[in-house]
Design a protein around this nucleic acid. Structure first.
Lengths: 119, 119
DNA sequence: TCGTAATTTCGAGAAACAACGAAATGACAC
DNA sequence: GTGTCATTTCGTTGTTTCTCGAAATTACGA
């Protein structure tokens, strides 16, 4: 685990302080997803989603894995950052009752990149 | 506890996403403090500190208690907000090694409003 | 090789935020 | 009451953040 300092804590909490990024984390709790799949659920520009994913990656919540022309993002399981290691298990239980989150997670279950992407 | 929704979560994490607010929370872990005492340690304008305290209060981390011309702020112990209730115990263990935080907490131990304030 | 699709990078505009000083509020002491 | 001090509110300024579209990058498939 990296050393704990105030700048790191600030970055971690900043990563969680945007509703679109919270939605992404809850979606990835369902399964790993490609950028275009997340984009289709959030209904934002691909470049915006890519930027949100970079923020979540740089703070240690998710990692990216190349898969051909796709980039799959998934929740980290080997935590580098202590704050994330302690927050992530809590966060798994949170927001389950929010209607937007519920709908996102439902869509995440069935979204199919071969149908949704390539517009 | 209030209902958990995405807007509430966003507000709670936003409250924690500023280093000066993190410093305030760690100071208040030492003891309740008046605004002018916190101001003297943070070295910010009183109006700025007041604004940070309002953000922490509105997200449920701290409460204010009038004491004559002073307003004392302290950590909440009866949590209204579920997120705060789960985060606060974790947060107590965090940032203890950060040099800025260590210095803040050391100052918080001995700061005296009758000496520091009234400038 | 060429075209297409997925993703990222870059630059720009709009909104949110942090900081300040000045003015307003509330409470004490004389 | 009057003055003083602690705090908050308000308006302003500079910075950061969110968002987009356009362009660059990478990989697949015809």
């Amino acid at each position: 685990m990296t050393t704990k300092n105030i700048k790191t804590a600030e970055r971690v909490f900043k990563a969680l302080s945007d509703s679109n990024r919270l939605r992404i984390l809850k979606m990835l709790q369902v399964k790993p997803m490609a950028v275009c799949e997340i984009t289709s659920i959030l209904k934002l520009a691909p470049s915006t989603v890519s930027s949100h994913l970079a923020i979540l990656r740089d703070s240690g919540f998710i990692i990216d894995e190349k898969d051909g022309k796709w980039v799959n993002y998934r929740l980290t399981d080997e935590y580098i950052e202590k704050y994330v290691a302690e927050l992530a298990p809590l966060f798994k239980e949170w927001l389950e009752d929010d209607p937007v989150i519920k709908n996102d997670m439902k869509q995440a279950k069935t979204v199919d990149r071969f149908v949704i992407c390539k517009q």
